[in-house]
């Protein structure tokens, strides 16, 4: 091993110390800025009595946003949030269209035109003992 002089050693130590401090400070700053407080987002929506939604009805629930479908086989809820980048879909004759980048979905939520690739999400639904419908977005 080659000898290094005291001066070189001090220089190395000084610079190492400086760069290390800078790296630590930057890392801490980024972590400081990336804290996410616990979400206060509502995930549970009370949609009222089952009687409001007769068999065959398709009801838009803008506050979720979702479409509550009452078929012969029971209730389902289709999320109306576009799976591309999150705009709210607008219903039309063939299904749903996205105003942001022209994605389209059929009435069952399958993609009929990109850029979206994933089908629409189905929301979890619960019918309580009092016959009210609750939809969950999580």
């Amino acid at each position: 091993m080659t000898q290094i002089s005291r001066r070189d050693f001090l220089k190395l130590a000084r610079e190492g110390f400086l760069y290390l401090s800078a790296a630590l400070a930057t890392g801490s700053l980024l972590r400081f800025l990336s804290y996410a407080p616990a979400s206060e987002q509502k995930t549970e929506f009370d949609l009222g009595s089952v009687d409001n939604y007769p068999v065959g009805s398709r009801t838009s629930i803008p506050e979720i946003p979702a479409l509550l479908i009452h078929a012969e086989s029971g209730f389902t809820a289709l999320s109306l949030t576009c799976t591309h980048l999150g705009c709210t879909l607008e219903p039309n004759n063939n299904g749903f269209a996205c105003p942001c980048h022209n994605s389209a979905f059929d009435a069952e939520g399958n993609v009929t035109q990109g850029p979206a690739v994933k089908p629409l999400r189905s929301l979890r639904i619960q019918i309580t003992d009092e016959n009210t419908i609750i939809a969950y977005t999580d």
Partner: peptide, 15 residues
């Protein structure tokens, strides 16, 4: 996710 939190501090945009 890190970039997203850096930009808007977590949670949903618009709220």
């Amino acid at each position: 996710d890190f970039l997203h939190r850096l930009a808007i501090g977590g949670g949903e945009a618009c709220t």
